[in-house]
Design a protein around this nucleic acid. Structure first.
Lengths: 256, 256
DNA sequence: TATGGCTATATTGTAAACATTATATCCGCC
DNA sequence: GGCGGATATAATGTTTACAATATAGCCATA
Protein backbone atom coordinates (compact mmCIF):
# COMPACT_ATOMS: atom_id res chain seq x y z
CA UNK A 1 0.00 0.00 0.00
CA UNK A 2 2.06 2.86 -1.20
CA UNK A 3 0.87 6.28 -0.41
CA UNK A 4 1.71 9.27 -2.52
CA UNK A 5 3.76 11.56 -0.43
CA UNK A 6 2.24 14.99 -0.27
CA UNK A 7 4.81 17.16 -2.03
CA UNK A 8 2.92 20.36 -1.64
CA UNK A 9 4.42 22.79 0.76
CA UNK A 10 3.13 25.94 2.23
CA UNK A 11 5.70 28.57 1.41
CA UNK A 12 3.90 31.20 3.31
CA UNK A 13 4.93 31.14 6.91
CA UNK A 14 3.13 34.19 8.05
CA UNK A 15 4.38 34.39 11.60
CA UNK A 16 7.43 32.94 13.30
CA UNK A 17 5.00 31.97 16.03
CA UNK A 18 7.11 32.24 19.14
CA UNK A 19 6.67 28.95 20.90
CA UNK A 20 6.07 28.83 24.62
CA UNK A 21 8.29 26.14 26.10
CA UNK A 22 5.92 24.49 28.54
CA UNK A 23 2.89 26.63 28.80
CA UNK A 24 1.12 26.30 25.51
CA UNK A 25 -2.38 27.62 25.30
CA UNK A 26 -4.12 25.49 27.90
CA UNK A 27 -7.56 26.58 26.83
CA UNK A 28 -9.87 24.14 28.49
CA UNK A 29 -12.76 22.33 26.90
CA UNK A 30 -14.90 24.16 29.43
CA UNK A 31 -14.62 27.21 27.22
CA UNK A 32 -16.03 25.29 24.30
CA UNK A 33 -19.19 26.97 23.01
CA UNK A 34 -21.09 23.70 22.85
CA UNK A 35 -20.26 22.88 26.45
CA UNK A 36 -21.06 26.39 27.59
CA UNK A 37 -24.28 26.41 25.64
CA UNK A 38 -25.53 23.21 27.17
CA UNK A 39 -24.46 24.25 30.65
CA UNK A 40 -26.25 27.58 30.51
CA UNK A 41 -29.29 25.94 28.99
CA UNK A 42 -29.36 23.57 31.93
CA UNK A 43 -28.76 26.16 34.62
CA UNK A 44 -31.50 28.26 33.09
CA UNK A 45 -33.73 25.18 33.03
CA UNK A 46 -34.34 25.34 29.32
CA UNK A 47 -33.06 21.80 29.17
CA UNK A 48 -34.85 19.53 31.57
CA UNK A 49 -33.51 16.35 33.17
CA UNK A 50 -33.96 13.41 30.87
CA UNK A 51 -34.02 15.50 27.70
CA UNK A 52 -32.44 13.74 24.75
CA UNK A 53 -29.28 15.32 23.39
CA UNK A 54 -29.05 13.93 19.87
CA UNK A 55 -25.71 14.30 18.20
CA UNK A 56 -26.96 15.23 14.77
CA UNK A 57 -29.39 17.79 16.08
CA UNK A 58 -26.81 19.42 18.29
CA UNK A 59 -24.32 19.45 15.45
CA UNK A 60 -26.83 21.22 13.27
CA UNK A 61 -27.84 23.61 16.02
CA UNK A 62 -24.28 24.67 16.78
CA UNK A 63 -23.13 24.52 13.18
CA UNK A 64 -20.38 22.03 13.84
CA UNK A 65 -19.59 18.36 13.35
CA UNK A 66 -20.63 15.28 15.22
CA UNK A 67 -17.10 14.63 16.45
CA UNK A 68 -17.02 17.95 18.18
CA UNK A 69 -20.40 17.30 19.77
CA UNK A 70 -19.30 13.90 20.97
CA UNK A 71 -16.29 15.39 22.70
CA UNK A 72 -18.46 17.97 24.42
CA UNK A 73 -20.99 15.37 25.53
CA UNK A 74 -18.29 13.08 26.85
CA UNK A 75 -16.88 15.92 28.88
CA UNK A 76 -20.27 16.76 30.29
CA UNK A 77 -20.81 13.10 31.10
CA UNK A 78 -17.53 13.08 33.02
CA UNK A 79 -18.92 15.90 35.10
CA UNK A 80 -22.21 14.10 35.69
CA UNK A 81 -24.24 16.75 33.94
CA UNK A 82 -25.07 14.43 31.08
CA UNK A 83 -25.81 10.74 31.18
CA UNK A 84 -24.59 8.62 28.32
CA UNK A 85 -26.25 5.29 27.74
CA UNK A 86 -24.48 2.96 25.33
CA UNK A 87 -26.10 2.79 21.91
CA UNK A 88 -28.91 5.05 23.08
CA UNK A 89 -27.24 8.41 23.28
CA UNK A 90 -26.85 11.26 25.71
CA UNK A 91 -29.47 12.70 28.03
CA UNK A 92 -29.55 15.49 30.54
CA UNK A 93 -28.65 13.89 33.83
CA UNK A 94 -31.49 13.09 36.18
CA UNK A 95 -30.24 12.62 39.74
CA UNK A 96 -31.85 10.14 42.07
CA UNK A 97 -33.53 11.36 45.22
CA UNK A 98 -30.63 10.14 47.34
CA UNK A 99 -28.15 11.90 45.09
CA UNK A 100 -30.12 15.11 45.30
CA UNK A 101 -29.91 14.99 49.07
CA UNK A 102 -26.20 14.24 48.92
CA UNK A 103 -25.70 17.26 46.66
CA UNK A 104 -27.33 19.56 49.17
CA UNK A 105 -25.36 18.04 52.01
CA UNK A 106 -22.14 18.59 50.10
CA UNK A 107 -23.12 22.17 49.42
CA UNK A 108 -23.76 22.75 53.09
CA UNK A 109 -20.23 21.62 53.87
CA UNK A 110 -18.43 23.38 51.06
CA UNK A 111 -20.33 26.64 50.95
CA UNK A 112 -20.27 27.25 54.67
CA UNK A 113 -16.52 26.78 54.52
CA UNK A 114 -16.39 29.08 51.53
CA UNK A 115 -18.31 31.81 53.29
CA UNK A 116 -16.02 31.56 56.25
CA UNK A 117 -12.94 31.90 54.08
CA UNK A 118 -14.54 34.71 52.12
CA UNK A 119 -15.05 36.72 55.29
CA UNK A 120 -11.45 36.13 56.29
CA UNK A 121 -10.03 37.17 52.95
CA UNK A 122 -12.41 39.98 52.14
CA UNK A 123 -10.59 42.97 50.68
CA UNK A 124 -11.53 46.11 48.81
CA UNK A 125 -11.84 44.46 45.43
CA UNK A 126 -13.91 41.70 46.94
CA UNK A 127 -16.25 44.14 48.62
CA UNK A 128 -16.70 45.97 45.35
CA UNK A 129 -17.49 42.77 43.47
CA UNK A 130 -19.95 41.72 46.12
CA UNK A 131 -21.71 45.09 46.19
CA UNK A 132 -21.87 45.15 42.41
CA UNK A 133 -23.50 41.77 42.32
CA UNK A 134 -25.98 42.62 45.04
CA UNK A 135 -27.04 45.69 43.13
CA UNK A 136 -27.53 43.71 39.96
CA UNK A 137 -29.59 41.17 41.81
CA UNK A 138 -31.69 43.88 43.43
CA UNK A 139 -32.37 45.74 40.22
CA UNK A 140 -32.99 42.91 37.85
CA UNK A 141 -36.34 42.20 36.25
CA UNK A 142 -37.95 39.46 38.29
CA UNK A 143 -40.16 38.47 35.45
CA UNK A 144 -37.21 37.41 33.35
CA UNK A 145 -36.99 33.91 34.66
CA UNK A 146 -33.78 33.02 32.82
CA UNK A 147 -31.91 36.05 34.02
CA UNK A 148 -33.10 35.38 37.57
CA UNK A 149 -31.82 31.85 37.51
CA UNK A 150 -28.45 32.95 36.16
CA UNK A 151 -28.07 35.65 38.79
CA UNK A 152 -28.95 33.49 41.75
CA UNK A 153 -26.39 30.92 40.67
CA UNK A 154 -23.80 33.64 40.20
CA UNK A 155 -24.11 34.77 43.79
CA UNK A 156 -23.03 31.43 45.13
CA UNK A 157 -20.22 31.25 42.60
CA UNK A 158 -19.06 34.70 43.61
CA UNK A 159 -18.86 33.68 47.27
CA UNK A 160 -16.77 30.67 46.30
CA UNK A 161 -14.54 32.93 44.25
CA UNK A 162 -14.04 35.28 47.19
CA UNK A 163 -12.89 32.32 49.24
CA UNK A 164 -9.76 32.30 47.11
CA UNK A 165 -9.49 28.56 46.57
CA UNK A 166 -9.71 27.48 42.95
CA UNK A 167 -10.33 23.84 43.78
CA UNK A 168 -13.24 24.79 46.00
CA UNK A 169 -14.48 27.09 43.25
CA UNK A 170 -14.53 24.26 40.70
CA UNK A 171 -16.41 22.09 43.13
CA UNK A 172 -18.95 24.81 43.83
CA UNK A 173 -19.52 25.29 40.11
CA UNK A 174 -20.13 21.61 39.71
CA UNK A 175 -22.45 21.48 42.69
CA UNK A 176 -24.42 24.48 41.42
CA UNK A 177 -25.10 22.71 38.16
CA UNK A 178 -26.06 19.50 39.83
CA UNK A 179 -28.31 21.45 42.15
CA UNK A 180 -30.09 22.86 39.13
CA UNK A 181 -30.72 19.32 37.96
CA UNK A 182 -31.82 18.18 41.40
CA UNK A 183 -34.27 21.04 41.77
CA UNK A 184 -35.56 20.64 38.24
CA UNK A 185 -36.20 16.99 38.95
CA UNK A 186 -37.84 17.26 42.35
CA UNK A 187 -39.22 20.77 42.64
CA UNK A 188 -42.77 21.61 43.43
CA UNK A 189 -43.93 23.47 40.34
CA UNK A 190 -43.78 27.24 40.44
CA UNK A 191 -41.45 27.84 43.35
CA UNK A 192 -38.20 29.72 42.78
CA UNK A 193 -34.84 28.11 43.40
CA UNK A 194 -33.70 30.53 46.04
CA UNK A 195 -35.78 32.61 48.39
CA UNK A 196 -35.41 36.15 47.12
CA UNK A 197 -34.18 37.77 50.32
CA UNK A 198 -31.54 35.32 51.35
CA UNK A 199 -28.75 36.62 49.14
CA UNK A 200 -28.87 40.24 50.29
CA UNK A 201 -28.81 39.07 53.89
CA UNK A 202 -25.82 36.83 53.40
CA UNK A 203 -24.03 39.47 51.38
CA UNK A 204 -24.57 42.08 54.06
CA UNK A 205 -23.22 39.77 56.74
CA UNK A 206 -20.12 39.08 54.68
CA UNK A 207 -19.58 42.79 54.12
CA UNK A 208 -19.94 43.32 57.85
CA UNK A 209 -17.34 40.61 58.40
CA UNK A 210 -19.75 38.79 60.68
CA UNK A 211 -18.32 35.37 60.07
CA UNK A 212 -20.54 33.32 62.35
CA UNK A 213 -23.61 35.12 61.14
CA UNK A 214 -22.75 34.71 57.49
CA UNK A 215 -22.00 31.03 57.91
CA UNK A 216 -25.24 30.50 59.75
CA UNK A 217 -27.22 32.39 57.13
CA UNK A 218 -25.66 30.40 54.32
CA UNK A 219 -26.37 27.10 56.02
CA UNK A 220 -29.93 28.16 56.68
CA UNK A 221 -30.34 29.29 53.08
CA UNK A 222 -29.18 25.96 51.71
CA UNK A 223 -31.34 24.02 54.13
CA UNK A 224 -34.30 26.09 53.03
CA UNK A 225 -33.61 25.22 49.42
CA UNK A 226 -33.34 21.58 50.32
CA UNK A 227 -36.65 21.57 52.11
CA UNK A 228 -38.34 22.78 48.99
CA UNK A 229 -37.88 19.58 47.07
CA UNK A 230 -39.88 16.42 47.56
CA UNK A 231 -39.45 12.90 46.27
CA UNK A 232 -41.71 12.28 43.34
CA UNK A 233 -44.47 10.15 44.77
CA UNK A 234 -46.15 9.93 41.42
CA UNK A 235 -43.20 8.20 39.86
CA UNK A 236 -42.47 5.83 42.63
CA UNK A 237 -44.02 3.07 40.60
CA UNK A 238 -41.66 3.80 37.78
CA UNK A 239 -38.68 3.82 40.09
CA UNK A 240 -39.84 0.56 41.53
CA UNK A 241 -40.15 -0.85 38.04
CA UNK A 242 -36.67 0.19 37.04
CA UNK A 243 -35.34 -1.28 40.25
CA UNK A 244 -37.04 -4.55 39.44
CA UNK A 245 -35.71 -4.64 35.93
CA UNK A 246 -32.24 -3.71 37.04
CA UNK A 247 -32.33 -6.60 39.44
CA UNK A 248 -33.53 -8.93 36.73
CA UNK A 249 -30.84 -7.72 34.39
CA UNK A 250 -28.18 -8.22 37.02
CA UNK A 251 -29.41 -11.72 37.79
CA UNK A 252 -29.46 -12.60 34.09
CA UNK A 253 -25.92 -11.33 33.69
CA UNK A 254 -24.69 -13.23 36.70
CA UNK A 255 -26.53 -16.48 36.30
CA UNK A 256 -26.16 -16.76 32.53
CA UNK B 1 -12.63 -0.20 -4.81
CA UNK B 2 -16.29 -0.91 -4.69
CA UNK B 3 -17.34 -3.03 -1.85
CA UNK B 4 -20.23 -5.40 -1.99
CA UNK B 5 -22.97 -4.40 0.32
CA UNK B 6 -23.26 -6.92 3.10
CA UNK B 7 -26.54 -8.67 2.58
CA UNK B 8 -25.91 -11.01 5.42
CA UNK B 9 -28.36 -10.91 8.21
CA UNK B 10 -28.11 -12.46 11.56
CA UNK B 11 -31.09 -14.81 11.82
CA UNK B 12 -29.95 -16.10 15.12
CA UNK B 13 -31.44 -14.05 17.86
CA UNK B 14 -30.16 -16.02 20.74
CA UNK B 15 -31.89 -14.17 23.52
CA UNK B 16 -35.00 -12.05 23.55
CA UNK B 17 -32.94 -9.66 25.64
CA UNK B 18 -35.54 -8.15 27.89
CA UNK B 19 -35.08 -4.43 27.57
CA UNK B 20 -34.91 -2.24 30.65
CA UNK B 21 -37.10 0.77 30.04
CA UNK B 22 -35.03 3.56 31.57
CA UNK B 23 -32.18 2.00 33.39
CA UNK B 24 -29.95 0.51 30.77
CA UNK B 25 -26.53 -0.62 31.86
CA UNK B 26 -25.09 2.64 33.15
CA UNK B 27 -21.55 1.32 33.29
CA UNK B 28 -19.40 4.37 33.67
CA UNK B 29 -16.22 5.14 31.80
CA UNK B 30 -14.55 5.11 35.20
CA UNK B 31 -14.61 1.34 35.00
CA UNK B 32 -12.70 1.41 31.75
CA UNK B 33 -9.45 -0.54 32.05
CA UNK B 34 -7.42 2.19 30.41
CA UNK B 35 -8.75 4.81 32.81
CA UNK B 36 -8.25 2.53 35.79
CA UNK B 37 -4.78 1.60 34.66
CA UNK B 38 -3.64 5.17 34.35
CA UNK B 39 -5.27 6.13 37.64
CA UNK B 40 -3.62 3.37 39.61
CA UNK B 41 -0.31 4.06 37.92
CA UNK B 42 -0.58 7.66 39.04
CA UNK B 43 -1.70 6.93 42.58
CA UNK B 44 1.16 4.47 42.87
CA UNK B 45 3.50 7.10 41.48
CA UNK B 46 4.64 4.98 38.59
CA UNK B 47 3.56 7.79 36.33
CA UNK B 48 5.08 11.10 37.32
CA UNK B 49 3.64 14.54 36.70
CA UNK B 50 4.54 15.78 33.26
CA UNK B 51 4.98 12.31 31.78
CA UNK B 52 3.92 12.10 28.16
CA UNK B 53 0.92 9.90 27.45
CA UNK B 54 1.27 9.12 23.77
CA UNK B 55 -1.81 7.76 22.11
CA UNK B 56 -0.10 5.14 19.96
CA UNK B 57 2.02 3.84 22.79
CA UNK B 58 -0.93 3.56 25.15
CA UNK B 59 -2.98 1.88 22.46
CA UNK B 60 -0.25 -0.68 21.97
CA UNK B 61 0.24 -1.13 25.71
CA UNK B 62 -3.43 -1.76 26.40
CA UNK B 63 -4.04 -3.65 23.17
CA UNK B 64 -6.77 -1.34 21.97
CA UNK B 65 -7.35 1.42 19.48
CA UNK B 66 -6.42 5.07 19.47
CA UNK B 67 -10.04 6.19 19.68
CA UNK B 68 -10.54 4.28 22.86
CA UNK B 69 -7.39 5.84 24.30
CA UNK B 70 -8.51 9.30 23.26
CA UNK B 71 -11.80 8.84 25.07
CA UNK B 72 -10.02 7.73 28.21
CA UNK B 73 -7.57 10.62 28.07
CA UNK B 74 -10.34 13.14 27.52
CA UNK B 75 -12.16 11.78 30.54
CA UNK B 76 -9.05 12.03 32.66
CA UNK B 77 -8.48 15.55 31.40
CA UNK B 78 -12.00 16.46 32.49
CA UNK B 79 -11.05 15.34 35.95
CA UNK B 80 -7.78 17.31 35.91
CA UNK B 81 -5.66 14.22 36.22
CA UNK B 82 -4.32 14.64 32.71
CA UNK B 83 -3.46 17.81 30.87
CA UNK B 84 -4.19 17.96 27.18
CA UNK B 85 -2.32 20.50 25.08
CA UNK B 86 -3.64 21.00 21.56
CA UNK B 87 -1.53 19.34 18.91
CA UNK B 88 1.00 18.26 21.51
CA UNK B 89 -0.79 15.50 23.29
CA UNK B 90 -1.67 14.44 26.80
CA UNK B 91 0.55 14.62 29.87
CA UNK B 92 0.15 13.65 33.48
CA UNK B 93 -1.17 16.75 35.20
CA UNK B 94 1.34 18.84 37.10
CA UNK B 95 -0.40 21.11 39.59
CA UNK B 96 0.98 24.52 40.38
CA UNK B 97 2.14 25.32 43.90
CA UNK B 98 -1.00 27.37 44.54
CA UNK B 99 -3.20 24.58 43.29
CA UNK B 100 -1.40 22.08 45.51
CA UNK B 101 -2.17 24.24 48.52
CA UNK B 102 -5.78 24.61 47.44
CA UNK B 103 -6.07 20.85 47.16
CA UNK B 104 -4.94 20.37 50.73
CA UNK B 105 -7.24 23.11 51.95
CA UNK B 106 -10.16 21.46 50.19
CA UNK B 107 -9.25 18.15 51.76
CA UNK B 108 -9.18 19.71 55.19
CA UNK B 109 -12.73 20.92 54.68
CA UNK B 110 -14.17 17.84 53.09
CA UNK B 111 -12.44 15.14 55.06
CA UNK B 112 -13.07 16.68 58.44
CA UNK B 113 -16.73 16.82 57.52
CA UNK B 114 -16.53 13.24 56.28
CA UNK B 115 -14.99 12.03 59.54
CA UNK B 116 -17.70 13.77 61.50
CA UNK B 117 -20.43 12.16 59.44
CA UNK B 118 -18.68 8.80 59.61
CA UNK B 119 -18.73 8.88 63.41
CA UNK B 120 -22.41 9.76 63.38
CA UNK B 121 -23.36 7.00 61.00
CA UNK B 122 -21.02 4.32 62.23
CA UNK B 123 -22.73 0.93 62.43
CA UNK B 124 -21.69 -2.66 62.76
CA UNK B 125 -20.80 -3.14 59.13
CA UNK B 126 -18.83 0.10 59.14
CA UNK B 127 -16.88 -0.92 62.20
CA UNK B 128 -16.04 -4.21 60.59
CA UNK B 129 -14.83 -2.55 57.41
CA UNK B 130 -12.74 -0.12 59.36
CA UNK B 131 -11.18 -2.79 61.52
CA UNK B 132 -10.45 -4.94 58.49
CA UNK B 133 -8.69 -2.09 56.78
CA UNK B 134 -6.67 -1.21 59.85
CA UNK B 135 -5.47 -4.76 60.13
CA UNK B 136 -4.45 -4.83 56.51
CA UNK B 137 -2.56 -1.60 56.94
CA UNK B 138 -0.86 -2.88 60.05
CA UNK B 139 0.21 -6.17 58.54
CA UNK B 140 1.31 -5.07 55.14
CA UNK B 141 4.88 -5.19 53.92
CA UNK B 142 6.27 -1.70 54.34
CA UNK B 143 8.93 -2.32 51.76
CA UNK B 144 6.38 -2.76 49.03
CA UNK B 145 6.11 0.89 48.10
CA UNK B 146 3.25 0.43 45.67
CA UNK B 147 1.09 -1.51 48.05
CA UNK B 148 1.78 1.06 50.76
CA UNK B 149 0.67 3.91 48.57
CA UNK B 150 -2.51 2.09 47.58
CA UNK B 151 -3.38 1.27 51.18
CA UNK B 152 -2.85 4.74 52.56
CA UNK B 153 -5.11 6.19 49.87
CA UNK B 154 -7.72 3.55 50.59
CA UNK B 155 -8.00 4.59 54.22
CA UNK B 156 -9.13 8.07 53.31
CA UNK B 157 -11.52 6.70 50.73
CA UNK B 158 -12.96 4.33 53.28
CA UNK B 159 -13.66 7.17 55.69
CA UNK B 160 -15.44 9.07 52.93
CA UNK B 161 -17.44 5.95 52.17
CA UNK B 162 -18.47 5.59 55.80
CA UNK B 163 -19.80 9.13 55.69
CA UNK B 164 -22.56 7.82 53.46
CA UNK B 165 -22.57 10.63 50.92
CA UNK B 166 -21.79 9.57 47.37
CA UNK B 167 -21.13 13.07 46.16
CA UNK B 168 -18.63 13.64 48.91
CA UNK B 169 -17.10 10.27 48.11
CA UNK B 170 -16.56 11.23 44.47
CA UNK B 171 -14.96 14.45 45.55
CA UNK B 172 -12.69 12.69 47.98
CA UNK B 173 -11.59 10.26 45.29
CA UNK B 174 -10.76 13.12 43.02
CA UNK B 175 -8.90 14.97 45.74
CA UNK B 176 -6.89 11.88 46.63
CA UNK B 177 -5.66 11.60 43.08
CA UNK B 178 -4.82 15.23 42.83
CA UNK B 179 -3.02 14.97 46.15
CA UNK B 180 -0.89 12.22 44.69
CA UNK B 181 0.05 14.56 41.88
CA UNK B 182 0.69 17.45 44.23
CA UNK B 183 2.93 15.37 46.46
CA UNK B 184 4.75 13.83 43.54
CA UNK B 185 5.42 17.30 42.21
CA UNK B 186 6.53 19.00 45.39
CA UNK B 187 7.70 16.29 47.77
CA UNK B 188 11.06 16.17 49.41
CA UNK B 189 12.57 12.98 48.07
CA UNK B 190 12.26 9.90 50.20
CA UNK B 191 9.49 10.88 52.57
CA UNK B 192 6.28 8.85 52.67
CA UNK B 193 2.95 10.40 51.81
CA UNK B 194 1.31 9.78 55.15
CA UNK B 195 2.95 9.44 58.52
CA UNK B 196 2.62 5.75 59.39
CA UNK B 197 0.88 6.13 62.76
CA UNK B 198 -1.79 8.63 61.83
CA UNK B 199 -4.27 6.20 60.32
CA UNK B 200 -4.50 3.80 63.28
CA UNK B 201 -5.02 6.78 65.59
CA UNK B 202 -7.81 8.23 63.49
CA UNK B 203 -9.39 4.85 63.02
CA UNK B 204 -9.37 4.18 66.76
CA UNK B 205 -11.01 7.51 67.49
CA UNK B 206 -13.73 6.81 64.96
CA UNK B 207 -14.35 3.39 66.45
CA UNK B 208 -14.57 5.02 69.89
CA UNK B 209 -17.10 7.46 68.45
CA UNK B 210 -14.97 10.36 69.67
CA UNK B 211 -16.16 12.80 67.09
CA UNK B 212 -14.20 15.86 68.15
CA UNK B 213 -11.06 13.84 68.59
CA UNK B 214 -11.36 12.13 65.24
CA UNK B 215 -12.00 15.39 63.44
CA UNK B 216 -9.04 16.99 65.15
CA UNK B 217 -6.79 14.07 64.33
CA UNK B 218 -7.82 14.11 60.69
CA UNK B 219 -7.23 17.82 60.37
CA UNK B 220 -3.85 17.45 62.01
CA UNK B 221 -2.97 14.56 59.75
CA UNK B 222 -3.77 16.53 56.61
CA UNK B 223 -1.89 19.57 57.84
CA UNK B 224 1.09 17.37 58.53
CA UNK B 225 0.97 16.07 54.98
CA UNK B 226 0.73 19.59 53.67
CA UNK B 227 3.74 20.72 55.61
CA UNK B 228 5.83 18.07 53.96
CA UNK B 229 5.78 19.65 50.55
CA UNK B 230 7.83 22.65 49.53
CA UNK B 231 7.75 24.85 46.46
CA UNK B 232 10.45 23.88 44.03
CA UNK B 233 13.08 26.51 44.47
CA UNK B 234 15.27 24.93 41.85
CA UNK B 235 12.69 25.46 39.15
CA UNK B 236 11.68 28.94 40.07
CA UNK B 237 13.56 30.24 37.08
CA UNK B 238 11.59 28.00 34.81
CA UNK B 239 8.33 29.08 36.37
CA UNK B 240 9.35 32.67 35.98
CA UNK B 241 10.15 32.04 32.35
CA UNK B 242 6.83 30.39 31.64
CA UNK B 243 5.07 33.26 33.39
CA UNK B 244 6.88 35.73 31.18
CA UNK B 245 6.07 33.85 28.01
CA UNK B 246 2.49 33.39 29.04
CA UNK B 247 2.20 37.12 29.51
CA UNK B 248 3.78 37.72 26.13
CA UNK B 249 1.45 35.24 24.53
CA UNK B 250 -1.57 36.86 26.14
CA UNK B 251 -0.49 40.31 25.04
CA UNK B 252 0.10 39.11 21.49
CA UNK B 253 -3.36 37.56 21.44
CA UNK B 254 -5.00 40.66 22.78
CA UNK B 255 -3.08 43.42 21.04
CA UNK B 256 -2.03 41.76 17.81
C1' DT C 1 31.18 25.98 17.03
C1' DA C 2 26.86 27.89 17.59
C1' DT C 3 22.81 29.59 15.25
C1' DG C 4 19.07 29.99 11.98
C1' DG C 5 16.35 28.12 8.65
C1' DC C 6 14.80 24.07 6.17
C1' DT C 7 13.35 19.23 5.60
C1' DA C 8 11.75 14.78 7.29
C1' DT C 9 9.40 12.24 10.64
C1' DA C 10 6.24 11.32 14.19
C1' DT C 11 2.13 12.50 16.48
C1' DT C 12 -2.24 14.50 16.99
C1' DG C 13 -6.68 16.10 14.98
C1' DT C 14 -10.57 15.53 11.69
C1' DA C 15 -13.72 13.93 8.31
C1' DA C 16 -16.28 10.57 5.94
C1' DA C 17 -17.70 6.01 5.18
C1' DC C 18 -19.09 1.99 7.34
C1' DA C 19 -21.05 -1.18 10.94
C1' DT C 20 -23.98 -1.86 14.78
C1' DT C 21 -27.60 -1.11 17.75
C1' DA C 22 -32.09 0.76 19.10
C1' DT C 23 -36.56 2.64 17.70
C1' DA C 24 -40.64 2.88 14.96
C1' DT C 25 -43.64 0.94 11.53
C1' DC C 26 -46.05 -2.52 9.42
C1' DC C 27 -48.01 -6.99 8.56
C1' DG C 28 -49.65 -11.53 9.65
C1' DC C 29 -51.75 -14.16 13.09
C1' DC C 30 -54.59 -15.46 16.86
C1' DG D 1 -58.90 -5.78 17.47
C1' DG D 2 -54.76 -6.75 19.99
C1' DC D 3 -50.38 -9.05 19.99
C1' DG D 4 -45.91 -10.88 18.35
C1' DG D 5 -42.59 -10.75 15.16
C1' DA D 6 -40.14 -9.11 11.21
C1' DT D 7 -38.58 -5.23 8.54
C1' DA D 8 -37.31 -0.31 7.71
C1' DT D 9 -35.50 3.69 9.51
C1' DA D 10 -32.70 6.50 12.32
C1' DA D 11 -29.49 6.96 15.64
C1' DT D 12 -24.97 5.83 17.79
C1' DG D 13 -20.33 3.66 17.61
C1' DT D 14 -16.15 2.42 15.08
C1' DT D 15 -12.80 2.05 11.52
C1' DT D 16 -10.11 4.05 8.06
C1' DA D 17 -7.69 7.28 5.62
C1' DC D 18 -6.31 11.76 5.45
C1' DA D 19 -4.83 16.55 6.97
C1' DA D 20 -2.45 19.61 10.07
C1' DT D 21 0.72 20.41 13.51
C1' DA D 22 4.83 19.89 16.32
C1' DT D 23 9.30 17.73 17.03
C1' DA D 24 13.81 16.32 15.72
C1' DG D 25 17.46 16.17 12.59
C1' DC D 26 20.18 18.29 9.07
C1' DC D 27 22.82 21.52 6.53
C1' DA D 28 24.42 25.97 5.45
C1' DT D 29 26.28 29.95 7.28
C1' DA D 30 28.52 33.29 10.10
Amino acid sequence: MKRTRPVKRKPKRSEPKLREPEAADPRSIDDDPVVQGILTAISQKRLKPGAKLGEDKLAAAFGTTRIHIRQALSHLASRKVVMQIPNRGAFVYRPSWEEAQDIFAARRIIETAAVSAAVDRLDKAGKAELRAHMEREARHDRNDRWASLSLTAEFHILVAKLAGNRVLLEMSRELMLRTSLAIATFEQPGEPDCSPDAHPDIGALILARDKAGAVHAMRHHIEEMEQRIRPKEGEDEVDELTAIFQEIGARARAGG
